[in-house]
């Protein structure tokens, strides 16, 4: 029995810890029970809250998504909206349950970065059926069961082309062999590689061009560990490798570690993607040549802008693509974000 009392006591204590998070809601809860109506946008006496936006992201361990969610929270607060941020942790089931919870909470809009672009369809449909508008950012939804108001993402195809142009700039005169460190299960990365290959193929098709040959495309899973592992294997089978295109910064940095271990860092040049902080620092140091960079902060801000536009009664475009930009060492030297650190 004592054990059970203890259980309950601790559970009670745990709940006690969590009460402060909710105190805000219970405060202005009494009051207008006699006064049946409130005119003007129904905003409760104290707060100016216009509603809540639920955001379920792919994974909060990737700093990229943290920047997006922070930017959304900041931008939404300016307009009187609160953003609830949760992470799907790469698990569609978890993300689908989070969407269920958003529906119960009666959020005004749902934003998601699908953990799986296809399996999330039923969850989007459920939000649709409950009359809640759905927006996606970064990764799109690929299916037709559900309806998404607007998708906000980096123009990955254009970004991939920029990486291809940087590669042609690097090897166009001499020719050479290239390894692509890919993540083929992400639609965004497929577009990046498609853009890259388009430009390189166009270069190779020119008369008398020094050929740039893609000798291997391997799955670096977008992670440092896997990027390192596949690069290690690739430099053994392709000892004359001249360059690497990695579809994001973690896998580019993993590739760099493998090159350094093999003493090939001067022979092989790396082009990455993303422009997250660690990537930009590597560009400043010269360990990565350049990145087509994304603008996660702008992506978050644009997402909120589209939601506001929706509530403004305007027609929202199906898709907004934010162009990428090449970022070299010169840009890193002028970047205020890198001076502070």
């Amino acid at each position: 029995m004592s054990a059970n009392i203890r259980t309950r006591l601790v559970v009670f204590l745990i709940s006690g810890l969590l009460i402060p998070g909710c105190a805000d809601n219970s405060q202005h809860s009494s009051g207008s029970s006699t006064d049946a109506t409130t005119t003007n946008s129904a905003s409760p006496a104290g707060g100016e809250s216009k509603g809540t936006i639920g955001y379920t992201t792919m994974s909060l361990t990737n700093p990229f998504f943290k920047v997006i969610s922070d930017s959304m929270t900041k931008e939404a607060a300016k307009h009187g909206y609160e953003v609830i941020v949760v992470s799907g942790d790469d698990d569609v089931n978890k993300q689908s349950n989070q969407i269920d919870d958003f529906i119960v909470q009666g959020v005004s809009a749902i934003v998601l970065t699908p953990c799986d672009p296809r399996s999330i369809g039923q969850a989007i449909k459920k939000a649709n059926d409950n009359g809640i508008p759905v927006f996606t950012n970064d990764t799109g939804y690929d299916g037709d069961e559900g309806e998404v108001e607007c998708h906000i993402a980096t123009d990955n195809l254009q970004g991939g082309r920029l990486a291809g142009e940087a590669m042609v700039g690097l090897l166009g005169e001499t020719g050479g062999t290239v390894l692509i460190v890919h993540k083929p299960d992400a639609s965004s990365c497929l577009l990046r590689v498609q853009g890259f290959t388009e430009v390189v193929d166009a270069h190779n098709a020119k008369d008398g061009a020094a050929k740039i040959e893609v000798v291997a495309t391997l799955d670096g899973k977008g992670s440092r560990e896997a990027g390192y592992a596949v690069t290690k294997d690739a430099i053994v089978s392709n000892p004359n490798l001249s360059a690497i295109f990695a579809i994001n910064d973690p896998s580019a940095l993993g590739a760099r570690s493998a090159l350094e271990e093999a003493g090939k860092q001067d022979q092989v040049t790396i082009i990455g993607f993303d422009g997250e902080k660690a990537g930009k620092e590597a560009i400043l140091k010269g360990t990565i040549l350049c990145d087509p960079i994304q603008f996660p902060e702008l992506m978050g801000k644009t997402t909120i802008e589209m939601i506001l536009k929706y509530f403004d009664g305007e027609d929202v475009p199906q898709e907004i693509l934010i162009p990428s930009k090449l970022y070299y060492k010169e840009d890193a030297e002028k970047d205020p974000a890198l001076q502070a650190g």
């Binding site: 698990d91 569609v92 689908s96 799986d116 399996s119 369809g121 039923q122």
Partner: peptide
Amino acid sequence: VQSSKLGSGDPKLGLM
């Protein structure tokens, strides 16, 4: 039940 709920057969299901 899980794949029916999500409407897809996903090899990443059942994580943890």
